[in-house]
Amino acid sequence: MEKVISIEKALDKINDGATIMIGGFLGVGNPPTLVDALIKKNVKNLTLIANDTARPDLGIGKLVVNKQLKKAIVSHIGTNAETGRQMIAGELSVDLIPQGTLAERIRCGGAGLGGFLTPTGVGTIVEDGKQRLVLSGKSYLLEMPLRADIALLYAQKADKFGNLVFRRSSRNFNPIMAFAADVVIVEAKEIVEIGQIDPDEVMVTGVVVDWLVQGKGGNA
């Protein structure tokens, strides 16, 4: 099956109100071409699951400035003043989640697990509304899996089956999110023929990748 599609075809799959996961950490590893196309299409009322909201002029931070989000599920918003402003004004709902818990919730969502127990956040406001379990004398919070309708990811290299290779710190949440959405769209900086990536070098199997988009180059 042909997975490489145009950016327009990829965007057709994203509609108002969707829950989307976007890889990246402070812009690094955001899929720049997909994010810019998302801004152009001006899809609204999105729920964003990502590590952070980058900066106002960088990566997914631009989605906040363009008021396309109704909710952000992230670990950090401190680098984007507009996120904080919209949150305080009641225009944007923000769920702040400890970064390791966010990553593991997404992993659970993609791994068929019903949740996990973590010591992170015990005795803090992160515990509010959650079940606390004490096992062998240690306290844990029960954290639930996270999934999305669509994942928009960035890879350094993909073959046409969707096997992925990431580079440096642009990897971050991208490999985990590849398992945790109904539709997974990957922007690759380079797309090569099947067989051109050594199986031992593949970081995420193409089994979980639905569509590939050729990146226009450049960063978030």
Binding site: H76, I77, G78, P98, G100
Partner: peptide
């Protein structure tokens, strides 16, 4: 309210 980032995991 910047968010906790990785701090809560680090201290635990």
């Amino acid at each position: 309210v910047p968010g906790m980032g990785g701090a809560m995991d680090l201290v635990s």
